[in-house]
């Protein structure tokens, strides 16, 4: 089981990043062992468009099973859904706390994007 969490830092005690496409980092964690790796998302932060799509591609290629983030827009959601990755929006607080909340079943998979797109 691999959980991708948007984060503004590189450790489990970092704060979650509410943004998906332009999140600073993705933390890829095993919720049981708490082993994790960090994927940088710097290349997406300054994209004029398509940051969500590219971020979704990163998550798909990292073979994550679920994504925990603050908000997920329509295009990113489409990519993630097509790849069969659960989107769990509404994350707040530290990455390690969010993992605990996940294990207690605090997140429900989204059926659609929870925010509008930025552009079209």
């Amino acid at each position: 089981m691999k959980l991708a969490i948007t984060s503004d830092g590189t450790t489990l005690s970092s704060e979650t990043d509410p943004r998906f496409g332009r999140a600073a980092y993705f933390i890829l964690a095993d919720p049981d062992t708490l082993e994790y790796e960090v994927i940088e998302n710097r290349q997406n932060i300054n994209l004029p468009q398509g940051a969500g799509i590219q971020a979704a591609r990163t998550i798909v290629n990292a073979c994550a099973d679920a994504l925990i983030t603050g908000n997920c827009g329509p295009k990113a959601f489409t990519v993630l859904q097509k790849a069969g990755i659960e989107v769990l929006p509404g994350a707040k607080g530290k990455v390690e706390d969010v993992i605990e909340q996940y294990k207690k079943g605090a997140f429900t998979p989204a059926k659609s994007a929870n925010v509008d797109g930025h552009w079209v």
Binding site: R57, V79, A83, W119, V120
Partner: peptide, 23 residues
Amino acid sequence: CGDICQFSAIVAAGETVMTFTEM
């Protein structure tokens, strides 16, 4: 296709390719 597109109008992720033609 996804690598050459500078506008994320086409994206290959895993076993699928998607287009966002408005971009």
